[in-house]
Design a protein around this nucleic acid. Sequence first.
DNA 1: GACATTGTACCAAACGATCGGTTTGCTGCG
DNA 2: CGCAGCAAACCGATCGTTTGGTACAATGTC
Lengths: 189, 189
Amino acid sequence: MPKEDYVPTLFSLFRQYGYDGTTLSKISAATGLGKASLYHHFPGGKEDMVASVLDHSDCWLQANVLHLLAGEGSPQARLQKMCEHIHELYAGGTQPCLTAILAMGTGRDLFHDKVKGLLESWIGAIANVLVESGFDKDLAIKRGQDALISIQGALIVAQNLDNASLFQRTIQQLPQVLLHPEEGSEHKQ
Amino acid sequence: MPKEDYVPTLFSLFRQYGYDGTTLSKISAATGLGKASLYHHFPGGKEDMVASVLDHSDCWLQANVLHLLAGEGSPQARLQKMCEHIHELYAGGTQPCLTAILAMGTGRDLFHDKVKGLLESWIGAIANVLVESGFDKDLAIKRGQDALISIQGALIVAQNLDNASLFQRTIQQLPQVLLHPEEGSEHKQ
DNA sequence: GACATTGTACCAAACGATCGGTTTGCTGCG
DNA sequence: CGCAGCAAACCGATCGTTTGGTACAATGTC
């Protein structure tokens, strides 16, 4: 079996238990492979496995967000499509975010740069759509950041409250929140 | 030295390294206490230490949010004061959230109920202020949830991007976002 | 076709290190 | 003395990792 076949299993393990919490015993049990076999596919050990998972996530982002947002259709339609993919990725808010969980504990030092890159390209892609829709560039970036704040925050709160609908509500209204016209001077006080 | 004196150190350890990542060796080094001394103060071991930290956080929430929001002053002023305390708690967005980090890995199973309770009372307190300001109760609760989504999300994104000002911006505009009048039917599509 | 060679996938067993947790024995002080 | 408080050694378990090997299909050589 090629190693790619194990990446989805690794993905769900790491995003559930985190870097420190995902032990090789758990991985061995979940994949059905002995520890030595795991080192055959991933010579770099646990760190190598997470790197593979992150590459896999990179591809996912490329296909389901970056390429999509830069493609055809109205901005509204593109953003909505993105939200559908997000909804699927996080299983409707019941599954944690890999990048968020890797930003904590031991994983933080190891994968910070990679995670940062993923996040930045995501924000940039959203901002590009908004610029294309006529928004000022600075405002577009700000709203791109706000989009990821909402996504990440909704995931955390939804899971801590056992309330997935809270996440779904947030995602569903994301496109119109992003595209709503600037009012006054953005609530200047 | 009474055990309370070590709780702040434990707090910063656990919110930095998470439950799995915070080893007794790290705790011993950070507190300057031997393991035996740690078990003298916290007979229940690591789990006992986290419980103490969570109690400490409970008191913090009680004093700096619940009591404050139920107190005197205009809703706007109370919410602003709360945001100042939040800003201080998270060191301007440079420090992670304890409850978020405890919701992952092994800690999730152990402390989920406690964390959920903390979050719920926080949301409830914000909602009460909004109801008092004349908002519909359902909308008030929704905005209370959104407030915590923004806080948690901003923390995650700010740290992954090494951009604390992103957090500060989010917190600073939180009061007026919470209090802004309902427009149309909340962006009905 | 027969046979050695190579490469891939896999694993049991064990490594040293460190884990969370416990016990021992000594110290300083009222 | 009595006892609270703690450093240090120790416990079994588990950590991530490594060694040494088996089974088997593909390839090359005669």
